[in-house]
Simulated scan of single mutants.
Amino acid sequence: MTDNTTAALQQGTEAADPQTLVSEDPEWGTAGHAEAFMLGNLMRVCKRRFANLVEPFNKLSEQEQGRLLSGLHDDLKEEIKTAVRIISANGRVTFRAEVDSVQFKGPSDIKATLKLVSGPETHALADMAGGFVTVVIESLDELLAIPDAELAGEPDTRPLFDASTED
Rank of each mutant, 00 (worst) to 15 (best):
D75N: 04
K47L: 06
A34C: 08
I80Q: 04
N52C: 07
L53S: 13
L72K: 01
F57I: 14
L76V: 13
K81E: 09
F37G: 03
E55H: 10
H73C: 05
L72C: 05
K81A: 01
L68D: 12
M38G: 02
G32F: 00
K59N: 14
M43P: 04
H73R: 11
M38W: 09
A51F: 10
R49L: 03
E64V: 10
L76K: 03
K47V: 04
A36M: 06
G40E: 06
L76F: 02
L76A: 10
N58G: 08
E62P: 13
D74M: 03
A31G: 00
R44H: 11
R67H: 13
F50P: 08
G40R: 01
G71L: 09
G71N: 13
L60N: 15
E62V: 12
E35V: 01
R48D: 12
N41G: 02
R67M: 09
L68A: 07
E35S: 11
E35A: 07
S61T: 15
N41I: 04
G71I: 02
S61H: 11
R49V: 02
E64W: 11
E79A: 09
G66A: 15
H33V: 07
V54Q: 15
E64G: 11
D75L: 06
L53N: 11
S61M: 12
E79H: 05
E64F: 07
Q63K: 15
G40I: 04
V54H: 14
Q65P: 05
M43E: 09
M43N: 14
K81V: 00
Q63M: 14
N58R: 14
K81N: 03
C46S: 09
F37T: 08
S70Y: 02
M38K: 03
M38F: 10
H73T: 01
A36Y: 01
Q65L: 07
S61W: 14
L60V: 07
R48H: 09
L76E: 00
